[in-house]
Structures are given as structure tokens and as C-alpha cells.
Design a binder for these strands. Structure first.
Length: 431
RNA sequence: GUGGGCGUAGCUCAGCUGGUAGAGCCCUGGAUUGUGGCUCCAGUGGUCGAGGGUUCGAAUCCCUUCGCUCACCCCA
């Protein structure tokens, strides 16, 4: 019982699951490229200061969820809890913002020290997509349309899209004050949770799931009613574009979001299929962030997709991602066959590009090796013993068909593999 | 940090009110000395999460603790 285990909330993605991940990642890359987005890879560790200034000092993420430690020189560093701040930092640092309209994405692990539960882990993975330097609502529309295309591409049911506008900082500040006044006047009716939020992040009261709070929240002032003409115009323009594109959405005046940097449009794709963690994709505009962390003011917008949640959705949808099985399993037979197996395999690999070949040159019975061949999922078993060495050929068994085995020269193998790649692989005869 | 559920073989689990640990799957070998999948036979594998207590005797009852999981909080 003293074996070392993985850290709580940090999971191995095992070979049996990795097919789904690769399939999702591949399709995402294809989609992003088709929209003209370029990959960026910021480091996983940043100065703690970056997250404090971007995400916000009094957010849960910064207050209690970051993996923070001192570097050897005393600098406070943190594992990234999200990726937007890092991308913004990188863009400022390397001058990407000199050309507006940067479309970038990043994918990788994020870290938050929360209690794990279904769909929420301490190390989790996100795809982050950002448009830097475009203030127009067309950027919002583009990201939303692209994410919808992703759901369809993956073959999962469209999640529900919720949209809201938070207005700019001035509007937010005024609204927050109004909200605090409203809830303070009714603080006797608030539950403990909401009373706490009143002090920390009053907007989040709107998010409360407590049914008893609903009437109070319903009657609260709504930020959509406090937007100025510019913000309203922006939001209406987005609605028009979504309408034209046939995107279904719901305006949720209570959609706030837990990071401080959001201004203007925010949105979330949610599902009720994943238990309590309903957000599959969330994002919004952050027009002030870049200036906040020291860049010259530049509008920006982005979203993040939770890959664990997407993988879970894909499983629920019953889509079976095809994982590449080996073309062949080469079994050396007897001392001579085992000795030359790797040499023959190398000749095959030289001759056939992208050949997927497992070599079994262990000292074991042929029976055992054929068993392993079958288990490997390979289409063919190649047998190499003294006879084959003498004939300069391989004995080939089709593991998916009941046809008799045959002797094929090394030259003939490449036609065999090409033919197998061209035709759909037959399923295993019995299970 | 708080609350619920659960910890028995690699996996899925059985083991009733205490009597000294089992099945299926997987894996290995054999039936087939160079021939897989199906079948049959045999076998490997467990300090019953850990520690303590009650008892002649604990996987089973009690206490403590650790882990997993779901939910709250928050979010992808």
C-alpha cells in the first residue's frame, strides 16, 4: 500500500482513452487552421503577478486555487490556472499586437487547486482561442460560429448557448454599486452564501442556485437595462450576425463569469449531460486586460473549451474514435527468426512509409506470439522462421479473415499493406 | 473548507445476523514440439485501504485515519 499514486485531481490519460483525445485534438487543429488561426505555446508557469493582475485579486482562482511557489531567486511563480493571461502577455512581449486581427490558439494543461468532482480536475486541459485587436462584434460572432462548427464536426449534440453583455468598466462599476445597494437593502433575505458574495463579488449573487434566492434575483436590476448606447449597439450587432448565421442562443442576464477581466460580451456553451459541471466552453471580451498588464490598449476576445468535458460528451454521444491499429505483427520463429526479426522489420520500414509494425522477437512459442498478434489488433501476422529466411519471404496470415496463410516476398508486402489501407478493415470474426 | 456514498485479485463485483476469502473477465501454460481468434482443462495473482479496539475467533461489529467518488463553493 505504499506505492506512489498520482496527485489527487491529476489523472493519467491512459492508452485506452487517448484515441478520443487525439481525435478531438486533430479535428480542432483542422478547424482552427481552416479559420486562419495560428498556434501559440506559452509556458505553463508565469509570474504570479500576471494572474493576480488579470484574473483579479479577489477571485476564487487567485485567492485559493492557484499552485503558487517561490522560485529559487524568491520570485513568486504560479502554474497557469487559465491561458488567456499568458497569451496576452506573450502578445505584448513579442509585439504581436502591432498587427491587429491576430487569431491564435493554445492547448494544454491548466491547474487549479479545487476539490475534484465529475468534470472538474486539478490538472485539466483547455483549448484557448483568442482574437486580438478586433473590437467589432464580428469577432464574437466568428468565435461562436466556429465553436458551433466544432460541436457538429465532433458529432456531439449542440450545447446550449447563453450570451450576455457586462458593459464596460464604467457601466460595471455603476451597476455593481446599484446591485450592492439593492441586495444590501434586502440582506435579511439573503442566504449565507449570497451575503458573503455581497462582500466579495456581488455579481455572483445573480448566479446563485438556491431556489429561495430566485424571486429576489429576478427582481434585481439587470445589467442589460443599464448598457449605454455603444454597448447596446455592439450587442445588437452580434445578435444580428448570430441570427443571420442561424445560431440559436439565449440571452441570460445573469450570466456573469468568475474572472474579473471580462467586459462587454460574455458567453457560455452549457449542457446538462455532465452533472454539475455544465459549461463546456466559456469566454468573452476582455478589452481592458492588455492595458491592465502593461500593453498598449487593445481590444480582445476569446474562449476556452474544457477538453475533459468534451471527451465526456463525445463518449455520451457514442462516437467511437478510430485509433490506428498496427498493420502487422512480425513474429520471429525460433532462434534464427528471432535473431533476424528486427533486421527484416527495418527493411520493411525502409520500403513502406507509414508502416505500423510491431516486432516480436522474444524467445517464446509461436503460439504465444500469434496470441499477442491477435491482441494487438494488427491486421496481419508476419511469420519469420528458418523457412522464410531461406525463401526470402514472409508467411502472412490475415488475422481478420479465414483465408489460408500465404508466402509473400518482401517486395510483395508493400502491395499488401497498400491494399489493406485502401479497403475498410474487416471486424474481428468472433469476439 | 463542508456534506453524502464507496474502499475485498489488474478490472467488475459476491461474501446474509462474526468461524480463518470466492466468481466472472484479464493474464500464463496445456489440449496443438512452426500457427491466433472459438472451446475445454489447469495455474498465477489478495497484509479484505491503513491503524487500533471488542472477541476464543473480525473482510464482517466499534473508533480513528487515509484514499476514491459525487455534491456545495467556483469554474472549462
Amino acid at each position: 500500500m505504499n506505492s506512489i499514486k498520482a496527485i489527487r485531481g491529476m489523472n493519467d490519460i491512459l492508452p485506452s482513452a487517448v484515441g478520443a483525445w487525439q481525435s478531438i485534438e486533430r479535428q480542432m487543429r483542422t478547424l482552427l487552421a481552416s479559420f486562419g488561426y495560428e498556434e501559440i505555446r506559452p509556458p505553463i508557469v508565469e509570474r504570479t503577478e500576471l494572474f493576480r493582475r488579470s484574473i483579479g485579486e479577489i477571485t476564487d482562482i487567485v485567492e485559493k486555487e492557484m499552485y503558487t511557489f517561490d522560485d529559487r531567486n524568491g520570485d513568486s511563480l504560479s502554474l497557469r490556472p487559465e491561458c488567456t493571461a499568458s497569451i496576452a502577455r506573450a502578445a505584448i512581449q513579442s509585439g504581436l499586437l502591432r498587427t491587429p486581427g491576430q487569431r491564435v490558439w493554445a492547448m494544454g494543461p491548466m491547474f487549479r487547486h479545487e476539490r475534484p468532482q465529475k468534470g472538474r480536475y486539478r490538472q485539466f486541459h483547455q483549448l484557448d482561442v483568442e482574437i486580438l485587436g478586433i473590437a467589432d462584434a464580428s469577432a464574437e460572432a466568428e468565435l461562436i460560429v466556429m465553436s458551433r462548427r466544432l460541436w457538429r464536426m465532433l458529432g456531439i449534440d449542440d450545447p446550449v448557448l447563453e450570451v450576455n453583455s457586462l458593459g464596460d468598466r464604467t457601466i460595471q462599476k455603476r451597476y455593481r454599486k446599484e446591485l450592492v445597494e439593492y441586495f444590501s437593502s434586502r440582506s435579511a433575505e439573503l442566504d449565507d452564501d449570497c451575503r458573503r458574495r455581497l462582500q466579495t463579488n456581488p455579481l455572483r449573487i445573480l448566479d446563485s442556485k438556491n431556489p429561495a434566492m430566485q424571486p429576489l434575483i429576478e427582481a434585481a436590476p439587470r445589467i442589460v437595462d443599464r448598457l449605454d448606447p455603444a454597448a447596446l449597439g455592439h450587442f445588437e450587432r452580434l445578435e444580428a450576425m448570430l441570427g443571420e448565421a442561424g445560431v440559436e442562443y439565449r440571452i441570460n442576464p445573469r450570466l456573469v463569469r468568475g474572472l474579473d477581466y471580462y467586459t462587454g460580451t460574455v458567453f457560455e456553451w452549457t449542457t446538462d449531460a455532465l452533472g454539475a459541471q455544465s459549461a463546456v466552453c466559456g469566454g468573452g471580451r476582455y478589452d481592458d486586460l492588455i492595458a491592465d498588464i502593461g500593453g498598449s490598449a487593445s481590444p480582445a476576445i476569446g474562449f476556452a473549451i474544457g477538453l475533459e468535458r468534451l471527451v465526456a460528451l463525445l463518449e455520451l454521444s457514442g462516437v467511437e474514435p478510430s485509433i490506428p491499429v498496427p498493420h502487422a505483427y512480425l513474429a520471429g520463429i525460433g532462434e534464427a527468426g528471432e535473431r533476424s526479426a528486427h533486421a527484416v522489420a527495418e527493411r520493411l520500414r525502409d520500403a513502406i512509409s507509414d508502416l505500423r509494425l510491431i516486432v516480436d522477437a522474444e524467445s517464446a512459442s509461436l503460439k504465444a506470439k500469434l496470441k499477442r498478434a491477435n491482441r494487438s489488433g494488427a491486421r496481419f501476422a508476419f511469420l519469420l522462421g528458418e523457412e522464410e529466411i531461406r525463401d526470402g519471404a514472409l508467411t502472412v496470415r490475415d488475422l481478420r479473415k479465414d483465408t489460408p496463410q500465404s508466402s509473400i516476398s518482401l517486395e510483395g508486402i508493400s502491395a499488401l499493406i497498400a491494399a489493406a489501407d485502401a479497403a475498410p478493415t474487416p471486424a474481428l470474426p468472433d469476439h
